[in-house]
Write a protein that binds this DNA or RNA. Structure first.
Length: 785
DNA sequence: CTGGAGGATCTTTTT
DNA sequence: GATCCTCCAG
């Protein structure tokens, strides 16, 4: 999403801003003289830029100048006057990518590009289209966008209304299913019966349908809807579709390997007319299968678009030959790739360094030492990064860096707009702008505490439903009656009056000032000021920051729209700091020195990935490893620990199978690497495997996790990716999940000691403990005495 | 209705 | 270890 506030206001394409002059650059390019922006491109890159018409797939390996090609291509289209800015659709996955593209086009053609209305993320473009035609999707044009949190809260209400046990059927799980369905383009009526039945005793489909209805009533859309609904709108309204097909003369898609089914269908529909679609991607960097991305989309591009050209970018400008060699050797273990061979012209450089450690803390110490060493040698910390598989790994590093006083930054960590205080404040603003936003109103009706508890809110809900109106209006009505206790009634009318007061002030003052007034008068600021906990101060600071960031927007509405789509705040830090992030968020970045810790079976490849998706899961993990290594320009350090604390419990792990897959020629084992467990690492045994002693499972698919996954498959218990099997089995297993215990049995509980079972409800046991008295406990916490 | 205590659950990745 | 949730006393 663009950070240009004008965009938010829904400004029209702004074609007038861009007027190539006859005889100018356009004519020059047409006449064959090489335009300046083409200089320095290699032949493949140049072909990718100049092949403007017809379907084109650019397979861009890591570090091959993908962004450069994309932006140059855009500039080329503009310069040769093939299209106005408003006639080009350019989609990316992240806001960052969109922003970067916009900036770089600006640099290429000099000055800021105006009118690139359709450059943005899938989601932001989806919203833009959906708002224009909201009524065709059963919404009003000012519909609100739910984030995951709202989504789950709403689902909880519906689930409870269906009388399902929240414990057994977590809303989170259903939210995951619904997201998955939406990613695959499945509206409630299209979900395969078996899948819909797998949740909530067969009620999954029903609840999904009801959820969709509720969204319409709330005048809201969730993330998945932004695309699914705009796709459906196109499918059901050929005239509108035709308008957009005509409008988009050229289409550009970044990170094509990450598109899911909806995105794919959406793109294909829009490209049908012009056929001028250029998709750029790298099948080896597809790492978002878990959220619905289909590598298949890239693998079958040529089938989908007959006559498509394919251009491979294989000249790498980033890494040393050792880094490329190691990465290529690793990824060669994957089947089902399109295949690329990366070349580099760099011919020196060090091998990758491999190290083993006793535990995660030692690993963090070693990397901390390395970083200090690099710093002493005048290296910039900004050019270094630690890439972890799972975010819990970050803690060890943060702890270590704090003790060392080594500056670091976490990229992609907990997001600013997801913090509680920010979401609360936003809810106030949302209610101000649209009082019918029930979810927002419910969020703040009793925050800070004003004596309006669950019972009162329930009454309002009931009243709202009876009168087919919103919660806010129901509250207004009930505040006039004797429905509530005097105290409750008083504070409710106070709140409602505050809102009408604020709404009146809205026109008379800057929105930032109003925001401050709201936070003060509502008592929200006070609430945190009174709070004694350690983070209260930080929260107040965040609230200030929130108001500050509103300044960049013309009005409150523009700001709210921005926030629902752009969940990150890009504070451009200039300080010199080590970068700490997950492998996923590292895609697209590069660093001189990269540390890749935690290469252990079970963690990387992640056990869950193997369990749930078997071989496909393993290959995605391997691509993740490939992404990790190829982030490095000069040096990569891979390490593993024998012991790691997970869940506050020590676990022993074997070195990752990926380590064995790295070609020896490109890897050095650190001589300082401590020997451990009685084995010395670093010696190359006769058989060639450096970790033969440690890793008895040199056969790639013989490790414990894989074996488990395979056994499960044979037993037919799999798995999310093979939905047809789910039907009877899972449902049967879950509903039949009564406990193996019987009434009257004597049991033992870790905390409460011995007791007798007095009652059973599903997997919950009522137990009379000898010492601790009567308790209700889950059966998994007790054993037979 | 509020607040505290204690139990349960969880940590893969995100627009 | 942290956070969410439920239950219970005031």
């Amino acid at each position: 999403m663009s950070s240009d506030p004008l965009d938010m206001a829904g400004l029209e394409d702004g074609i007038a801003h861009f007027e190539p002059k006859p005889g100018g650059l356009a004519a020059r390019a047409a006449a064959g003289a090489a335009a300046p922006y083409l200089k320095g491109l290699n032949p493949e890159q140049r072909a990718a830029v100049e092949t403007t018409d017809g379907p084109l797939l650019v397979l861009a390996g890591a570090g091959t100048g993908k962004t450069r090609v994309l932006t140059t291509r855009l500039a080329h289209l503009l310069h040769t006057a093939k299209a106005w800015p408003g006639q080009i659709l350019a989609v990316t996955f992240t806001n960052k990518a969109a922003r970067e593209m916009k900036d770089r086009i600006g640099q290429l053609i000099g000055g800021v590009v105006e009118g690139m209305t359709w450059l943005g993320t899938f989601h932001s473009i989806g919203v833009k289209i959906l708002r224009r035609h909201a009524e065709l999707a059963g919404l009003k044009s000012d519909f609100s966008i739910l984030d995951t949190d709202d989504q789950i809260r709403l689902l909880k209400q519906i689930i409870a209304a269906h009388g399902l046990d929240e414990k057994r059927w977590p809303a989170r799980q259903l939210a995951g299913h619904i997201d998955g369905w939406k990613n695959r383009g499945l509206t409630p009526d299209k979900v395969p019966a078996g899948e819909a039945a797998a949740y909530g005793n067969g009620k999954g489909g029903e609840i999904y349908a009801e959820y969709q209805q509720r969204l319409k009533i709330l005048n809201a859309a969730d993330f998945g809807d932004l695309l699914l609904e705009s796709l459906r709108m196109f499918q059901e309204n050929p005239d509108v579709l035709a308008e957009y097909q005509r409008r988009f003369k050229y289409m550009l898609v970044d990170e094509y390997q990450d598109t899911n089914v909806v995105q794919y269908l959406w793109l294909r529909l829009l490209a049908q007319q012009s056929q001028n679609i250029c998709c750029v991607g790298d099948d080896d960097q597809s790492i978002y299968g878990w959220r619905g991305a289909e590598v298949d989309n890239i693998l079958r591009f040529e089938k989908d678009f007959p006559g498509a050209k394919v251009i491979r970018l294989e000249q790498n400008y980033r890494s040393t030959p050792h880094i490329l060699g190691a990465a290529s050797g690793l990824i060669a273990n994957n089947e089902g790739r399109l295949g690329k061979t990366l070349r580099t012209e760099i011919n020196d450089g060090e091998k990758l360094t491999l190290r083993g450690h006793w535990d995660g803390d030692e690993e963090a110490r070693a990397i901390g030492d390395d970083l200090e060493g690099l710093q002493r040698h005048g290296k910039n910390l900004n050019d270094t990064a630690i890439l972890v598989r799972a975010s819990f790994q970050m803690r060890a590093f943060e702890d270590r860096f704090i003790t060392l006083g080594l500056p670091y930054r976490v990229i992609g960590g907990p997001r600013f707009y997801e913090r509680q205080e920010i979401r609360d404040a936003m809810a106030y603003f949302k209610v101000l702008m649209s009082p019918d936003n029930d979810l927002a109103f419910e969020r703040i009706i009793n925050v800070p505490k004003r004596g309006i508890g669950d019972t009162s809110v329930k009454k309002m809900h009931a009243h709202a439903r009876r009168n087919q109106t919103s919660l806010f209006r129901a509250a207004q009505m009930l505040a006039e009656t004797d429905e509530f206790t005097p105290k409750t009634r008083k504070s409710l009318s106070d709140l409602l009056m505050s809102f009408s007061r604020w709404r009146q002030m809205e026109t008379g003052m800057p929105h930032t000032e109003l925001a401050e007034i709201i936070l003060d008068e509502s008592g929200y600021t006070q609430m945190w000021q009174n709070n004694k906990s350690a983070d209260a101060e930080g929260r107040l600071e965040n609230l200030k920051e929130l108001v500050r960031s509103m300044q960049e927007f013309e009005n409150m509405a523009g700001f709210l729209e921005h926030v629902s789509l752009v969940m990150d705040t890009d504070t451009q830090e200039s300080d010199d700091k080590v970068n700490l992030m997950t492998l996923h968020s590292a895609k697209g970045l590069e660093f001189d020195t990269v540390f890749l810790p935690g290469w252990e079976e079970g963690l990387f490849p992640h056990q869950r990935s193997l369990d749930e998706n078997g071989r496909a899961g393993l290959e995605e993990e391997r691509r993740l490893a490939y992404v990790g290594i190829t982030r490095a320009k000069q040096q990569a350090y891979i390490s593993f620990a024998q012991n790691r604390r997970i869940h506050n419990q020590w676990q022993t792990a074997l070195p990752s199978r990926f380590i064995d897959e790295l070609p020896e020629a490109h890897v050095d084992t650190d001589p300082m690497s401590t020997s451990y467990g009685g084995y010395s690492i670093g010696g190359f045994g006769e058989s060639g495997s450096r970790f033969e002693d440690l890793s008895p499972f040199s056969n790639t698919y013989a490790t414990p996790g894989w074996q488990r996954a395979k056994e499960r498959k044979q037993r037919g218990e799999m798995m999310r990716s093979t939905p047809h099997i789910i039907e009877g089995e899972l449902v049967a297993r879950d509903t039949a999940e009564t406990t193996a215990f019987e009434k009257g049995e004597r049991i033992f509980h870790q905390k409460f000691g011995y007791g007798i079972i007095t009652g059973i409800d599903g997997n919950k046991l009522s137990i009379a403990f000898e010492k601790a008295g009567d308790k209700r406990v889950l059966d998994s916490f007790v054993t037979r005495a």
